[in-house]
Write a protein that binds this DNA or RNA. Structure first.
Length: 213
DNA sequence: AAAACGGGGGC
DNA sequence: GCCCCAGTTTT
């Protein structure tokens, strides 16, 4: 798979899917919090839950002082609320006490926060700080394997492999394109290859017997 | 490397 | 009722 083909595919996806979705550029606190809430949670539910949380805890200090029993019910609708509630409070305390009350613009500092893994950290770099980071979620992992751009077993492996074959200027923008394509066409179990705008460049689309991930 | 975590909408 | 969803943490 050549770099030019990768660029062509991303351009077609960009022309096909033009919305931005619920994670907007802006307040790093809200981007980070909404991104943690979004883990394993549908986008519509993420928006509803995030708005409830932000109405009660509009900034880092208020979330750092939150009572877990009060935050927990607000998180219903996202997945694993009982795990996320204490993590979000612990996260806000660390930001307040060790990062000058701000979200760090730094991958290693973000990864030290409770509830923040590589997917979330890279997502924050993109949408809070407009960095060219590569955010590998389950859609990116599945689709880049089907396309044949990488041959990997885990999202972490996909991140390393994709860094080497995808031009850096496509990294940040690829995030929402993979998500939207993954929800609309390149579904996890039975993808709609006949409707796919990039099937011409896709190993899976040309050979649906290819193992799915 | 694999299991645990276990809410809620769509079918 | 069953299946799946913008992952992280723990074993």
């Amino acid at each position: 798979m050549s770099t030019e083909n990768i660029r062509t595919v991303m351009e077609i996806l960009a022309a096909t899917y033009h919305g931005r979705g619920s994670v907007e550029l802006g307040d790093p606190y809200k981007v980070l919090t909404a991104t943690v809430i979004s883990q394993r949670t549908r986008e519509e539910q993420t928006t509803a839950v995030s708005n409830r949380v932000f109405a009660r805890y509009p900034d880092i200090p208020s979330l750092a002082d939150a009572d877990e029993s009060e935050l927990f019910p607000l998180l219903n609708g996202s997945q694993y609320p009982e795990a996320k509630a204490p993590r979000l409070i612990a996260m806000a305390k660390i930001l307040r006490d060790k990062h000058d009350g701000k979200v760090p613009n730094d991958i290693d500092a973000l990864l030290e926060l409770p509830g923040v893994g590589r997917k979330t950290a890279n997502c924050v770099l993109i949408y809070a700080f407009e960095r060219e980071a590569l955010c590998v979620d389950i859609h990116c992992h599945r689709i880049s394997n089907r396309l044949g751009w990488v041959k990997t077993q885990t999202p972490d492996q996909t991140e390393k492999a994709l860094e080497k074959v995808m031009p850096r200027d496509l990294w940040a923008g690829s995030n929402r394109l993979f998500l939207q394509h993954g929800r609309a066409i390149c579904l996890p179990s039975i993808p709609k290859c006949s409707e796919c705008p990039v099937r011409e460049w896709c190993e899976y689309g040309q050979d649906p017997a290819t193992p799915k991930r």
